[in-house]
């Protein structure tokens, strides 16, 4: 909960149920629905009636919140806060409809109409969801392996002089190489394109995690070790209970960077070799010149990536609850 959110809520409170901005957003959605059904399309478009009914229904729901939002608990508080966004999205939808379906200023089929997008989501969602699920599984496997490997390597490098003597030059030389450069070789070496992709994703995750874990362990205040030693700590205790917890904030930065780069590797791997997943869906849609499907896949992919990053930040907030002033995502 950010401070602005709290103050916004305090300003309005439960005294008045009316949310004027939310009401305005409802009008925007009704307007979009009316414009869609009464202004004739340039070319034939599917599902015009269904889409305009959907928008009108959306306008009705938003309007309900506009009238009684103050009494509708958390959801009402959300519409109060995001009312301007609801309105802006309605306006953007109107602009989109006008530019594509109604006037053709943005040419078809490269800029699909709202109706075309609606059709894609209405009829192709099982395939998209399945692709997204496959992508998450592949990414999850690669990311977990890579995070585990990077974390172990980083701890060993921070702790053992001998290990860092041999591994630092290797890491410095091989680490910065983009994982995608290994792609042609990986598809040869590994028995399946799936295992090759897991390796590539793990590789791209492991590098930032290893570097940041290493620097996290190296940056641990020496006094912590001395205090633990005077209190009778064994070397094992020093690693598990001093070095690792102290390095965790760095480790999470590494995990964040690793996750971000692994998205790129995932998409490339799916486009070039794996026969499933959102990357593959993109590629497949391009083959059919199905532009609306491509936009749809991008939309789902953005939701997936953003969701995974959010999940990582949630985990970090729980683990690093002792830190003050952590960045909220």
């Amino acid at each position: 909960m950010t401070t602005t959110e709290t103050t916004l809520r305090l300003d309005v409170g439960p005294v008045t149920a009316l949310q004027p901005v939310t009401l305005l957003a409802a009008l925007g959605w009704f307007g979009a629905a009316a414009l869609l059904s009464w202004w004739p399309d340039l070319t034939f478009q599917p599902l015009v009636r269904e889409l305009s009914l959907t928008w009108a229904a959306l306008g009705a729901v938003v309007g309900l919140f506009g009238l009684f939002g103050g009494r509708l608990g958390r959801a009402g508080a959300w519409t109060q806060l995001r009312g301007p966004w609801l309105f802006a999205i309605a306006v953007a939808t109107v602009v989109w409809t006008v530019l594509t379906a109604k006037t053709g200023i943005l040419p078809q089929p490269f800029f699909p109409t709202p109706q075309a997008m609606f059709e894609v989501f209405l009829y192709d969602w099982p395939k998209m969801l399945h692709s997204a699920w496959f992508s998450v599984l592949l990414l999850g496997q690669g990311f977990l392996w890579g995070a585990a490997a990077g974390f172990s390597i980083g701890i060993a490098m921070g702790w053992s002089r001998a290990f860092s003597y041999w591994s630092v030059p290797l890491l410095r030389y091989i680490g910065p190489l983009p994982a995608t450069a290994w792609l042609p070789l990986a598809f040869f070496i590994f028995p399946t394109s799936g295992s090759a992709s897991v390796f590539l994703i793990a590789f791209s995750t492991a590098f930032p995690v290893a570097v940041l874990t290493w620097s996290g362990v190296a940056a641990v205040n020496r006094d912590y070790y001395e205090i633990a030693r005077t209190l009778g700590a064994s070397p094992r205790f020093l690693i598990l209970k001093v070095a690792i917890p102290a390095a965790l904030p760095h480790v999470f930065v590494g995990l964040f960077m690793g996750l971000s780069t692994s998205f790129a590797v995932l998409v490339v791997a799916e486009m070039l070799g794996v026969e499933a997943g959102l990357g593959w869906y993109l590629q497949w849609a391009q083959g059919w010149a199905a532009y609306a499907n491509m936009y749809g896949a991008l939309f789902v992919m953005a939701a997936m990536c953003s969701g995974l990053i959010t999940l990582l930040f949630r985990i970090r907030d729980r683990v690093l609850v002792w830190q003050k002033g952590v960045v909220r995502w």
Partner: peptide, 26 residues
């Protein structure tokens, strides 16, 4: 036991867990 000028408590541990450090280590 040496007590330093800075308290150098472990920031990831609660007061209780900090005090328990020695017993835990042993």
């Amino acid at each position: 036991i040496l007590v330093f000028q800075d308290p150098t408590l472990f920031p990831w541990r609660t007061v209780r867990a900090n005090v328990a450090l020695g017993l835990e280590a042993q």
